[in-house]
Amino acid sequence: MTEDKALKKVLKVHNNTLLPVEFNKVLMNRIYIESEKKRRRSFIWGICLISFVSLSLITMAIYLLKDYLSFNISLHFPAFVWSPGSESIFGFSSYIALLVLVLLALDRYLRSIRHKRIE
């Protein structure tokens, strides 16, 4: 192949088309937004992973206590009396505990939104 000077010249002339002055600035703004999204995504993934591992460990612990160690709660905690009536109280307490956790998470989320708006 020769130097193909004509081809190079034609392509060079076309190459003079310039990008807008603000191009890189606009692009970097999009990159910062993307970076924030990426950070948030990895945070959510981290939370999901931790939750999954924690739940697995709790499930495994319950399974071990129940089936392998023949753990009897009334032997270790004599004051703890399990009756058909207490079941509903435990259920209610668990529900309240869960509700408190959800409200705390909601509070944190709303605070972070408010904080961002102020910034």
Partner: peptide, 16 residues
Amino acid sequence: DSMLDKEDDEAMLLRL
């Protein structure tokens, strides 16, 4: 080769 080396022929450059 000879055609693609004609860098001074403006009409040819436009066609290219």
